[in-house]
Nucleic acid binder design. Structure first.
Lengths: 138, 138
DNA sequence: CGGTATCCACAGGGATACTG
DNA sequence: CAGTATCCCTGTGGATACCG
C-alpha cells in the first residue's frame, strides 16, 4: 500500500489531503493490519497458543526473519500480542495473544468464514470477467 | 503492499515461494480487498444505495478519478459490485452492490464495529509503547 | 536463538492530460 | 459525464549479512 497516509506534495501544505474521518475513523488502523501480508497469519497461528520466534517462522511459511520481527513488533505495539523474553543462553522469546488479540482473532475468524463460503463465487466471477474481457492489464 | 503475490527471483523458478494454502486458502483474496486503500470505503458507500461515478467520487473524499475507476473495476470483477451503463449523452453509469457484495458489506460492518469498540485500547497501547520506546523508527 | 542493519526491486497509487 | 493514458514518487517487504 504505497503512499498510505502520506502526501506527495513538498512540505508547504496546510490541510490534510485525506478526509477528516468520513465513515472511516479508526477502522483504517484495523484495516491496515488486515491488509499487510503477515499480521493475520501470525494472529491465526498465535490463536492456537503461545509460540516462540522460530516456531512462528516455521508455522508461517514464506515469512522472512525481518518481516516476522517487524510484524510481531507492530502487533505488540497495538496491544494484540504480548512478548516475553527469557534472558537465557541461548535466548528464548514467547509470543502470545492478549485479551484484545484474542478478540481480534475472533473477528478475523468470522472474516475467514466469509471468505471460505464465498471464495468459489468470487473465483467464478473473476474467471467470468476475465473471459468476457480477454484484454485488460490486471 | 509491494510484492504481494509476486516473486523477485528472475524467472527460472519452479516452486511457489508462498505456502500452498497453509491456513490461508482464499482468505488472501478477501484480505487483499480489505487491504487496499479504497475498496472498503467504496463498499460502505454503496451499501447505502446505488451510486453514480461522480457521486462515489464525492462520497469518498480524496479518491482520485483513476483509483475510483480501478477499484470499482476490481470490485466488479470480484462480483461484489454491478455496473450499469446508460449510453445517454452525457453518459451515466450506476454502481450497486450485488448480493455477494451486500453480504461482504455485512462482514465489513462487523469488523468496523470491532474497530470502534477497540480503537481506544489500541491507541492507548500504541502511546504506551511509544513512550516506553522513544527511539525506534516506526 | 532471536533478532538488526542495509540495500534494493517493485507494485500501488497520486497528478495531470486527454477522449468518446 | 465517465472514464483512459502516462509519468513518477513512495512505502513495503524480500534478500543478505551481521550481532549479543
Amino acid at each position: 500500500m504505497a503512499g498510505t497516509r502520506t502526501r506527495t506534495t513538498p512540505a508547504t501544505e496546510a490541510a490534510d489531503p485525506y478526509a477528516p474521518c468520513e465513515d472511516d475513523c479508526g477502522i483504517r488502523d484495523v484495516l491496515d493490519r488486515l491488509g499487510d501480508r503477515w499480521s493475520v497469519l501470525l494472529v491465526v497461528e498465535l490463536a492456537k497458543g503461545t509460540r516462540r520466534f522460530r516456531e512462528l517462522q516455521h508455522a508461517v511459511p514464506g515469512i522472512s526473519q525481518r518481516m516476522l520481527s517487524v510484524t510481531a513488533k507492530r502487533l505488540v505495539r497495538d496491544g494484540l500480542v504480548e512478548r516475553t523474553v527469557y534472558p537465557t543462553i541461548p535466548p528464548r522469546t514467547d509470543y502470545r495473544l492478549t485479551a484484545t488479540g484474542r478478540s481480534f482473532a475472533g473477528a478475523v475468524a468470522a472474516l475467514a468464514d466469509w471468505s471460505r463460503t464465498h471464495k468459489d463465487a468470487i473465483a467464478a466471477s473473476r474467471d467470468d470477467f476475465d473471459t468476457r474481457h480477454p484484454d485488460e492489464v490486471r
